[in-house]
Design a protein around this nucleic acid. Sequence first.
DNA 1: TCGGTGATTCTAAGCGCATAGATTAAGATG
DNA 2: CATCTTAATCTATGCGCTTAGAATCACCGA
Lengths: 362, 362
Amino acid sequence: MRRATVYDVAERAGVSIATVSCTYWQPSRVRESTRLKVLEVAKRLNYIPSASARNLARGRVGALGLYSFDFCPVRSLEQGCEDGQEREGETDICTYPLYADEVERGFQQACWQMGQAVLLGGSTGSNPTRSVVDMAGRVDGLALLSWLGDISTLQRLATIMPVVMLAQNPGDLPVLYVSADNYAGLGELIDHLVGVHGAKRIEYVGSMIDPEMRERFHVIQERLTQLGRPVPLMPVDEGFAAKQPFQSVKAMQLARDLPDALVCENDQTALAVINFLRGLGTRVPDDVMVTGADGILAGQFSDPTLTTVQLPMQRIGNIAAHELARQEGKPWTKTKSVLVSEKLKIRQSCGCERPVIHVSDC
Amino acid sequence: MRRATVYDVAERAGVSIATVSCTYWQPSRVRESTRLKVLEVAKRLNYIPSASARNLARGRVGALGLYSFDFCPVRSLEQGCEDGQEREGETDICTYPLYADEVERGFQQACWQMGQAVLLGGSTGSNPTRSVVDMAGRVDGLALLSWLGDISTLQRLATIMPVVMLAQNPGDLPVLYVSADNYAGLGELIDHLVGVHGAKRIEYVGSMIDPEMRERFHVIQERLTQLGRPVPLMPVDEGFAAKQPFQSVKAMQLARDLPDALVCENDQTALAVINFLRGLGTRVPDDVMVTGADGILAGQFSDPTLTTVQLPMQRIGNIAAHELARQEGKPWTKTKSVLVSEKLKIRQSCGCERPVIHVSDC
DNA sequence: TCGGTGATTCTAAGCGCATAGATTAAGATG
DNA sequence: CATCTTAATCTATGCGCTTAGAATCACCGA
């Protein structure tokens, strides 16, 4: 049994398809009695308008897309459950929720509020270009969370529809850049470590591949320069994703030459470093301070709790959606940016007191 | 400047639109040289195929939808941030992530894996029927997490496309019901309370409005009957969402007549009860055992940690997506169901020992 | 050179809907 | 009753793409 279309409804209601269409989109143009008649028939025939047809005719889709790196397989593999099967032990708060999930939340919320549909996409591992292009065909605007594909694809997309890059510097692509103001947040963090805890030597742990991470490092260098403290020339180690992580940290630990503080590229790395050091018999913050960046949930519940710079990820997602909707399908013609401010979260891993947490305060 | 279409590409490449289309979908039918030519022109013109047009022509959309109740406004309001603005204090683990987020995760993962687009929707507050119908027009199949609208709408949808209801009993609608096996999980929980902790009197806290919650209560009654223990005839109180929650619990506490255990409809209620009792000077599990159901993340980090029955929500979302995809747009003709097994999580709130948790074990 | 045979390409017909503009109906006015 | 005005409805076209089947091409052996 075929799905009912406007034609079916029109025929049964004794009107033309134009009238049926108007019944939905310009009700004021059709007489009350016919309107009711049409609606009655539509309901009786289980008529559901085809969005594809509508969008095609209108030239607008009414949906926004969020493309984010596919963390799921990583998470799943780590936990030995390829097919989304349940984990054996407890949920690992270190891999979920992450900042990407917060962004998604804000994006989704904004879209719903504006009556836009939300399309979620991500690299299926094989071909990011293919999947992002497919997605682009389905939406009026696209937000990208961690684009690891080539720039030329973005260039193409940004030419024909509004694209926003989240927490990832777009260079000079004609897109909207929504991110956190690394300068203020990390600056505050360094001030805290130096001013309150008297840190003399501060080292950085993190990769220099990601431009965003690179920027973080540079901000730290800059601030330390301003404060007249020793400035690290390079990160001492890569992040938690390295094959053999933290070998330099280990060497320093063995040589009893740890710095006063290890500032990490993000929270996951910070938590991994803390754990790594614990394995070597070094305690945080007693022997060395460790800080992160992002503000993932795990940092509130780790031991020690994690001093970090919190990125307003939900807000970032929210802004992205609103700005995309405002463009109504029209691409930006030059680079624009919106920076939101970060917030310093002072917790235990820098040596400050444990804040009181009421988990049961629902 | 208009967006490029097949016509533009065809013209510039000196072929017909059919050849352009075949280049993408039946590459074997077009000669290598023309294929390359077409692709080159397409790239040069920034050609992105319109999904609307493709879907219309094909009669299939290539997207699956997940409709879930919109928790966001609730969460936001609770935290005083209407527009997704950042919270002042720490993230409240009791409102995020919840089971809905886990479902979403599993659903999304499965869709990406299958190359299906994911459409996320939810009640925008005003009109659930309108929003779910709009969504239905955009997808080949629909999963519903907490449908609070009317049944007749579902009836309509289920007639023309595959619909799955998640953790919500569909009655006799021709849909797929994917949920957890309350019998086994809650049964185990009761066995534990009675067998290990020697509980004599057990009361239930939760609403009877939601059929799923009602079922939970009945399962408990049944098990207690089997064990020959006193069977509660009614819940003593509604859940955490009530206006004046836990008044009966309060009365029992004042009368020094608390039961041995309070089994709650879900984790959020359990955590709220624990907190409520703490305010009255009653300690859990010393004075009374309290248990939950769902297995939200907060239960792992509360004090005491929460004994609960964990629903494999990610798995449920995953299954839903796979089953929907298998239908290829064809609705189910009668009620079907897939039940996955729950897992008892024994933690502190029933009096058992604290399990060791390694938050930093990333 | 000619018929035959795949390989390649094209023609043509929709898919279901929105909407501009034409047409008709229904009142209103003189 | 003729004319004008407004309300209601319809006709006709196109949105960008897929695909069945027709047409054409390239190349074979006889």
